[in-house]
Every structure is written in C-alpha cells, then in structure tokens.
Write a protein that binds this DNA or RNA. Structure first.
Lengths: 346, 346
DNA sequence: CTGAAAGCGCTTACAG
DNA sequence: CTGAAAGCGCTTACAG
C-alpha cells in the first residue's frame, strides 16, 4: 500500500472520493462511476487501473451522495413500541428479511408507547427520506403523516390501525380471538370471567374487550363492572387488578389476560392463589407449555404480520395504487391446560 | 392550503425544497436555512413569511442532503445475530436509548450467524456512512473493517470479540460464569456433569467450555469426552446430544446448558426424563422462575452490555483516542431449584 | 439582518 | 469507449 500517493487520504476521518480515484487512475469521474456500478463499456485495461486505485486508496462509495442524486434511499423505517418486547422480535425480523430481499436497510426505533415520541421518530425517518414506513402506532391521530404520504412515503400500519387517516393496515383478529377465548372458558363451565387488558386508548385492548363482551352476551351472561380492568400492563397494576377480582365476595373463576405482558404476571399471581383459577392468555410465548399448568393461549402470528405488512409496503413502492388494504390475520386458540380448569367456588 | 401556488408541489413523489420555500417567501436560500435551523438573526416578520411558506408547501428538510454536507450522519449501525432472539431485545433497546440521547438513529440488521452476511451488512452500513457500529460478530476475521475504522467509523464489539484486529469490546465473563455454575453443581454432589454448548467457532461457546473444564479440574474430576457436546443450538441437535448423555451406561447427573436456546430445549428434555437431572442454564430468561423445577441460571445483563458498548461508542465519536478498551461485565448465578437437585443414579 | 456563490460526493444527460 | 458539465438539496464561508 503506497500511502504517500495521496497525502491526506489516510488521515483519520477523511475518506477518498471518486474524484481521488479518478485522479489516481488518470481517468474521468464518469469512468470511475461506471466501474463502481459495474456498467458496461469500459476496456479491461481501464477497469484494472481504476480497480487498483480503488484498493490502494481504500475507496468505498458514499451511498449518502448516491441517494441524494437517485431519489430513493433503499431504506425503510420500522417504528414499534419496544424493541425489547418479545412479541416484536419475530415481527421485526420478518420485516427485515423482506427489506433485505429488496435490497433495503431497516432503520428502527421504539415509541415507548408515547404518541409524541412516535411522531418525533416517524418524522425523523421521513426527514431521512426512508422509502417507506412500517408503523405499530402508539398514538391515535396520524394526520401529521398526510403530507409525507402524499409526498410518496409508503406507509403500512401493523397490529393497530392508523388514527384519523385511511392507510394500509395489517391487524390480527383481536375481536374474534378474545371472543373464542371467552367462549372456550364458558364451555368449560365458567360464568364469572375477568378481563385484564391494556390501556383503553390502545386499539387492540378495545377490540379484545369487545370480543370478551360479545362472548358473554352470546351466552346470556351478565358482566359485572369489577370483572373488567383496562390499564397499564406494569406488573404491579396487573397484580392489584387480579387481586381485586379474586378477593371479591363473588370472585371470578377464570381470567382472560389481554396480552403477553399481562399473562406473565397473571401466571405468577395465579400460581400463588389459594384455589385454581382458569387462564387464557392473548399472545403465545415461548415457554407457555412448560409452566404448570401449561398456559392456554390465543396465538397471533407476529412473523406473518410483519411479512404481510412489509410485502404490502414494497408492492406500494413498486407502484400499485389501489385504495388502502385492511388485512386481518386470524388467531388460533391453543388449549394447553390452564384454560380447561373447571370453575372452583371460593 | 393553496395548492395552485406551486404547480407540481403536490405531485405524488415530488417534495418542495428550500429553494421552493425561498421563492414562495420571497427571500434567499440562506434565510430559509436560518429559519429551519433556528439560527439567530432573522426579523420576526421575515421568519413568519418563511414559516408560512413552509406549512403551505408541506416542506420538510431533506436530512440526506444535510448529512452529505455536514459529514456526520447522526446514525449508528447495530449488527446482531437475530433480531428475534430474546437475548438481543434488551441489548438493542439499550443501544437505541443511548443513540437517542445523542440524537442518533439506529440502523440494524441480523447476520443470521453467517460471517458473509455480517460482512455484507457491515459494509453496507459503512457505505451509508453511519458514524459508528456496534457489532455482535458472527465471523472471526474482521480485517475487512480496518480501512473503515481508519477512515473514522467508530466500532465497538459486544458479546464476542473482534477477530484478527484489535478493537473495543464489551464481553461478559463467560469463563467465570461457566466455572461458577459447574462449581455450584459439584458443591451439590455432582461428579458427572454434561456441557451442551453452541458451535465451537463462537467465542462464548469456547470460553464457557473452558470455564466448565476449569471447574472440573479444580475439583479433581475427570471429564469424559462424551460429556461435552458443542454444535448447533437447534432443538433436534440439543435433544439428541442430551439423550446421548442421559442414556449412557454411566449417565451424567447434571447439565450445564451453554445458552438460552439450549436451556429451553434442555428443560423440555429433562421434563420428560425418567429421573431428576440437575440443570444450570447460561443466560437468564423471563419465565425461568415459573417452570418446575425453577431454572437456576448464570445471568448476564444484556441491557448493561448494550449501554456500555453504546456509551463507549459515543465517547469515541466525541474524540477520545485511547487504545481499545476490553470491558468485562460480570455474571451472576441465580439458584432457583434446578441447579440444586442432588445426583440421582440411573 | 440578508443573500449569492461554492461545494459535499455522487449520477444524469449529453457530446465526442 | 470516455469525459466535462450540470444538478440532487442542503450548509459553509464570505460579502454586503
């Protein structure tokens, strides 16, 4: 490596450009561009000289510059609630794989369930001019996205719909899943069934509650207000909600846990309860079959949701102009034991 | 909104630029730049005219262009094995939070434990000119990164060290953790202890094996070749490795599982075993205390590892030029039951 | 307080 | 087969 050839080329923080390569190879800028992009029409001899200059200088094309000129950034943004939540792992990975198959990189971030942070993150991604966005929204008003969508940033919502704009969405059948779960508990003899769910401003929480009520109504069962508790999924909140339902004069004999965070706490609480209480959890989780009793769940398919959303996104980027799609992914009830426990009176 | 003011401004896929804003507001380009960046020295009246033009046109600064000019991209890359692996969730989230506190975005991707894919991804990130990289390496030769590091891309390895280059690394005490785990089993009376670990080309697998051997040697215990099995962590592979150790004429009475993937399968296998077998798992996992028996683990702190690595990365970006740091994060043995089972002869 | 010119590192459109 | 000029959308350095 001849380091002297270009005085400052190895200076920390300074990179050689195509211009430097051109100068060293004794060719024009466009010829370097042709070689770097594998375009035809360069003599083998010229190409070799350019390649030599590239390796000698340690040149790597600056894609930021390329992107500025070409218009498309070959990157998409993924905004979700929390990168650390196991539910979103397979979803993220699925989105990444689809992006990769289209040659795009993934920029992602967590909204931490904060609408303001969601907006800040989404607009930062728009400013970077990502080609498209996959959003698991925290907020319920996405009118701020309208100029961006109009300007051409393809956007698909997953898990929860967009608020106050009409946009592509890939949701799971929250209503049907919750309804099936409660019908399952009723079929096993339960009449007093509790529901502990996420905050009511979250679409999935409302839909699952609707499914719960629908199944109760279909069986002609009343729902006592004290059997329903929506709020934060923090362990303390779930714990006290469950305690209230279990310690009441007429306690619930079964519980529907509104998502995987709630289920995990519910399993802990019920493990310490004085009598068996049936449990169905919304969302499957890795060790559900190893806990005793094994946990009956309503399983979603987060990888399929991610794949579906990303697939739709890239079809939009390829130019399809149909009206917004609203796709619903079915859920699946998996009986494992906890949901088949019969009612035990206190 | 007067859509006629700029004929094509609302055309799908075309965005207004600062030039458009300047023309509409009747000011120079630099004045728009001042307003957009909140620089001082603009009369309130001028500022208002510019702001009006910005909203009317739906202008959003193109950060790609800004970045090209400024040099820094305010983004960092995170390359890990698999976004869907629960071990990496908290690590990713921690890196994200540090990046966010420095105003940077996170671009991330999975290597799928494939060295070629790791390199491809890392170099794509370098071409995008990320300011820095946090890498959980799949490969063991990172000389390909040398020109990039020389050119100023800060790089910190996490969980596993760089191969054939000297670079910053944040590792956990794999050796000590495994040694403590095995010493714990020995203290509970075990003499024939198995180790099922990840592929031997993975640094953590080798270190943990070394810890295993060290503890056995310290207690004066022999290690039969059939008690050690390194390889894929796919359930079938782990299952057959465990079966071989448990069905031998002189079966092992305890098992050290080399990581969370192995532990989960080991729990399933041991749950179906004819006699109790002790188990310690490397890596903690969410429901370890709910399985029966509850699983004794050597816990790492992935969030701390992520925070430490990202913190170091940004200190490098701030210009510290000390030689590479090799930080070791301690592990913690958490006894929960499975590791305290005494030996049972077959 | 304000703006015209040059330039970041590429690609595009065109000419030889 | 090869290259000079213009331009992508900003910021920088400078002048008024």
């Amino acid at each position: 490596m001849t380091d002297t050839a270009r005085g400052t080329s190895r200076r920390y923080g300074t990179r050689p450009t195509m211009k430097d390569v051109a100068a060293r190879a004794g060719v024009g800028l466009k010829t370097v561009s042709r070689v770097v992009n594998g375009e035809a029409g360069v003599t083998p001899d010229t190409e070799r000289r350019v390649q030599e200059a590239i390796s000698a200088l340690g040149f790597r094309r600056n894609d930021s510059a390329r992107i500025l000129r070409k218009g498309r950034t070959a990157s998409i943004g993924l905004v979700l609630e929390d990168l650390a939540d196991p539910f979103y792992g397979p979803l993220s990975r699925a989105v990444e794989e689809v992006a990769r198959s289209h040659g795009a990189l993934l920029i992602n971030g967590s909204s931490a369930e904060d609408p303001a942070r969601e907006q800040e993150l989404v607009l930062a991604l728009c400013a970077r001019r990502v080609d498209g966005l996959v959003i698991i929204p925290a907020g319920d008003d996405h009118r701020y996205l309208e100029p961006e969508i109009t300007a051409g940033i393809a956007t698909v919502f997953v898990d929860r719909p967009a608020g106050r704009i009409d946009a592509d969405a890939v949701l799971c059948d929250n209503f049907g899943g919750a309804r099936d779960a409660v019908a399952h508990l009723i079929a096993h003899g339960h009449r007093r069934i509790g529901f502990i769910g996420d905050q009511p401003r979250i679409h999935t929480a409302r839909e699952r509650l609707r499914g719960y009520r629908s199944a109760m109504a279909a069986a002609g069962l009343p729902v006592d207000d004290s059997w329903v508790s929506l709020g934060s999924t923090a362990p303390e909140r779930v714990r006290s909600a469950a305690a209230a339902m279990l310690d009441a004069p007429e306690p619930v004999t079964a519980l529907l846990a509104g998502n995987n965070r709630v289920t995990v706490t519910a399993v802990r609480v019920l493990g310490a309860a004085p009598r068996p209480v049936a449990l169905v959890g919304f969302d499957d989780f890795e060790l559900a079959d190893l806990v005793r009793p094994a946990v009956t769940v309503v399983a979603q398919d987060p990888a399929l949701m991610g794949r579906t959303a990303a697939g739709l996104l890239f079809r939009r980027l390829d130019g399809i102009t149909e009206p917004p799609h609203h796709t619903e992914i079915p859920t699946r009830l998996i009986p494992r034991g906890s949901g088949e426990i019969p009612p035990t009176e206190g």
